[in-house]
Design a binder for these strands. Structure first.
Lengths: 341, 341
DNA sequence: AAATTTCTGATTTACGTACATCAAAATTGG
DNA sequence: CCAATTTTGATGTACGTAAATCAGAAATTT
């Protein structure tokens, strides 16, 4: 049988009240007594029953998800997953609130973060925009003992407790490897399509991609990055133009959103050219394109996993608990035509 | 505030005792009353607080993991993960017991399954060996209202509640796609290496692999399958012999365990031949081989995820609860040199 | 209509922890 | 050494549910 507070009391030769004072760091216990109790806790291997504790406390975890606006499929999916998590709120004792901020807007994000001070918040998840002032605002929250996890896009150098997202440099390298290998030694040009170089995850993907390309596939030349702003229309135009302007293009890497436009352009202009295409984010559009052969591989991060992981980590951190690292590492999923879920 | 049993009682105009009888399907309630209570439950949207219920019940979940013996890295990893889960037992109110059975031995597995009847068991996870008598034994457990999940290897056609493992046909197809694309149109022979064709997951991988190869990469010819019995020594010998005997081999697919031997043979005999190699299971050996270029891709199933998922599903099923399907689907991980964890 | 039998209500205890209150004991300061 | 202060003990209530008991009400049978 698992030891309880009563067992601690007996083992330490003190009363239940004293054990409680030690466990919940309440004042009024001499150091010697406190140490005696702590020794007993270690000796008998007591672990607090979090379920019972939360029941007694009537604890709920008011969590805030700060998400950027955005009209692409990935953002829609992310919102949907957070809303899913909200429907599970009563079961998980969470109370999730979504705060929308304009995308790529550090001051707005800082304002949203700073507004949380003094509020009853057990944890914050945010899609970080990479800027020093955001870093500082995150650090202020951490200083105020509020658990913070970054979601999808990290904020290295900040004091955030955890990052629920993929390693984007590795993602870029992986994309390069797949594209390079799929092209099997052929020589030609690669078009790279990004949303915006203002977002850290896009920059990192490009960095990884370019580095590996240069190192291992010198026969492939990277064309200047096209910035589609994650918008299908802009993307479609850029790609059509590029394909029309050069017959040397043999591969495409799309590292952002707005793939609807890319696919449209590929079907219109790229048909029959034997292009090899690697994109990010599995959506209904990329899934269909993968199946009909327009796209060769999709790299994906599972927004559902990311959100659930963020919630678990925030709760655990709020309780001063650890978590299973392996379970919380977000995998980069690689999909080809054959392993679609 | 979340509704409680008291709210049901008030809403239905009955006493707490009656609500309890309905909730826990105890006898002594007229059908009309029962329906009144059930209506109230639906109306106010009551959901049982599982944490409180388990606390009151003092519930523990005695789970049994039936695992085959086996000396390969994957099995070691699986055992390690189950043992890890055992260390979390007190926190999760589980009591995990491992039952070892000889590998590929249906009668032994049936005996182990049948021995569980009458025992205090809240759920069973097993690495299934595919045989009608095993199916029947699993069905008997399900009939006895004991939750059953298959682990790593499924038992389709049985009544098992869930399968915590990857889709092996899809895995085989994916391997074929990667191998075919990586070879970029070259013509030649492919050596396929399996553990044993007696295991369903190996058969399925081969099936998927062969099907896609035939359909999409006709320039690649499959050599007869080598059965290495998941043993490094046997495997090493078979591969060395095959490579020495033919210069037409340009690709290798290893769908089972025992890759230590494969890697040794590749380094000895395959060096400089430009072989493209796809294997299953990420271990320290395959990881190193991936990094040094001996292997081109590793397909993997995360044993930790599988075990944790099995535990979650068994507990939920024992409680008559559902689970988040997306969270419990085991992904096929694809690793190349660049996205190793 | 009485005697059963079947339902239902009221109440209590328990699970493991948190938290509050008040009294008693130990320690400290003067 | 006594008073003031700090520390500790004893006890009760609460969280939401499970489970048991027993009395009383309603339905069913005779």
């Amino acid at each position: 049988m698992r030891p309880t507070v009563y067992d601690i009391a007996a083992a330490a030769g003190v009363s239940l009240a004293t054990v409680d004072r030690v466990l919940n760091q309440r004042p009024g216990v001499r150091i010697v007594t406190r140490e005696k109790v702590e020794a007993a806790i270690r000796d008998i291997g007591y672990v607090r029953d979090v379920a019972a504790a939360n029941l007694a406390k009537g604890r709920v975890y008011p969590l805030v998800f700060i998400l950027p606006t955005g009209d692409n499929s990935f953002m829609h999916g992310l919102y949907a997953e957070v809303r899913q998590a909200m429907t599970r709120s009563s079961l998980e004792r969470t109370e999730i609130r979504i705060v929308q901020v304009p995308a790529f807007d550090p001051p707005a994000l800082v304002a949203a973060l700073d507004a949380l001070h003094g509020q009853d918040v057990a944890g914050v998840a945010l899609v970080a925009t990479d800027a020093p002032e955001v870093r500082a605002a995150v650090d202020r929250l951490v200083d105020a003992r509020i658990p913070v996890v970054t979601l999808v896009s990290d904020l290295t150098g900040s004091a955030r407790h955890h990052y629920a997202g993929v390693d984007n440099i590795a993602a870029g390298r992986t994309a390069a490897r797949l594209l390079g290998r799929f092209l099997g030694g052929r020589k030609g040009d690669i078009t790279v399509l990004a949303g915006s170089m203002l977002v850290r995850d896009h920059r990192e993907r490009l960095e990884g991609f370019a580095a590996l390309m240069a190192a291992e596939f010198p026969q492939l030349r990277l064309l200047p990055v096209l910035e589609g702003r994650d918008d299908p229309e802009i993307t479609s135009g850029l790609v059509s133009e590029a394909l029309a302007g050069s017959n040397d293009i043999i591969g495409v890497y799309s590292l952002g959103a707005g793939n609807r436009g890319l696919i449209r352009a590929l079907k219109a202009t790229g048909q029959g050219r034997g292009l090899t295409v690697v994109v990010h984010e599995l959506t209904e559009h990329t899934r269909a394109a993968l199946q009909d052969g327009t796209i060769d591989a999709v790299l994906n991060q599972d927004a559902g996993h990311e959100v659930r992981s963020a919630v678990r980590v925030l709760k655990a951190t709020a309780d001063g608990q650890g978590f299973i690292a392996g379970q919380e590492r977000i995998r980069l999923d690689i999909f080809v035509k054959d392993n679609l879920p």
